[in-house]
Amino acid sequence: MDLDSFLQHGRWLHVCVDMQRMFREKTPWQAAWMPSILPNIVDIVTRHAENTVFTRFIPPQRADDACGAWREYYEHWHQMTRAEIDPDLLELVPELKVFSFPDKVFDKNNYSAWRATKFRDYVRNHDPAAIVLTGGETDICVLFTALEAIDRGYRTIIISDAVYSSVDETHDSTINFYTKRFTNQILTISTKEFNRQAPTSGR
């Protein structure tokens, strides 16, 4: 993939996936090393705020409100339903919330960002050639969003030191999966390399 052709001309969209308090703070879904990659995401967002949007994973009110296998999922994780969780934990972490605006935050109740109608409309209207992904989890929501981006024809860039998982082994294997199986469609690069090649858009 020719990175310069996408980044130098600004035809890309940075999708920061599910950087929410419920994944950083002490909950059943806490990802212990999410804070370690947060500074890299803040760096990217600070430099490229105009090209950045955010997603939030929003559980149902109760398990009974979910459909199919999701109902059993939330019966197991009932503490994370909106009936039980502190609603403030659904918010973006404060370091990123300061960059967010209502028209750039998209709520979803599935793994892929593309399940959110408003997100699809935003991408269609802005017509990027490439999708840049950060956030979490590497092996769940980032994975589903990346695969659907590929299916929709977008070149996809994973910032390898700006994604996190709660399981080290599957994080590592998924990064390897991105690198080895999608050589013409996914590019995995570091925050430093990305910022070096993408012109700063400002806030």
Rank of each mutant, 00 (worst) to 15 (best):
V132L: 06
R124I: 00
N176G: 13
T183Y: 08
R120K: 12
F99M: 11
P60R: 11
T81P: 07
D86K: 03
M22G: 02
K26G: 01
P94H: 05
H48R: 07
P60I: 10
F177P: 03
H126N: 13
A162T: 09
K118M: 03
C16Y: 00
Q79T: 08
I159F: 00
F101T: 15
A130M: 09
A83M: 06
A31G: 11
D65N: 12
T81Y: 05
D168F: 11
R120L: 00
P28H: 01
T174I: 12
R203F: 05
D161T: 01
I37M: 14
R115F: 09
I189Q: 09
Y73Q: 05
A116C: 15
F23D: 01
N110A: 12
L89M: 09
T145F: 04
W33F: 14
I37K: 09
F144H: 15
E193A: 12
V42F: 02
H9Y: 01
A146E: 07
R181N: 15
Q20R: 07
M1W: 03
R120W: 00
S100D: 13
D103F: 04
V53E: 05
K104N: 11
A149H: 09
F54E: 10
D18M: 04
I140F: 09
M19C: 13
G202F: 04
F57C: 09
E137M: 12
Y164E: 12
S190W: 06
P87K: 07
H126K: 11
T170C: 08
S166R: 14
A113Y: 06
Q197M: 10
D43I: 08
L89W: 00
R181Q: 13
F6K: 03
H78S: 14
A66E: 07
Y164H: 13
K104S: 11
A32N: 08
S201N: 01
D64E: 14
D172F: 06
Q8V: 08
I186T: 06
F182L: 00
H171G: 05
I85C: 00
R155Q: 13
E75T: 08
E91A: 14
T134W: 06
L147E: 10
V163G: 07
A129V: 06
D172C: 09
N195K: 03
R181I: 01
D168G: 10
H76D: 03
N176K: 15
I186W: 02
P35N: 02
T46R: 07
D161W: 05
A63R: 06
M19Q: 11
N40A: 13
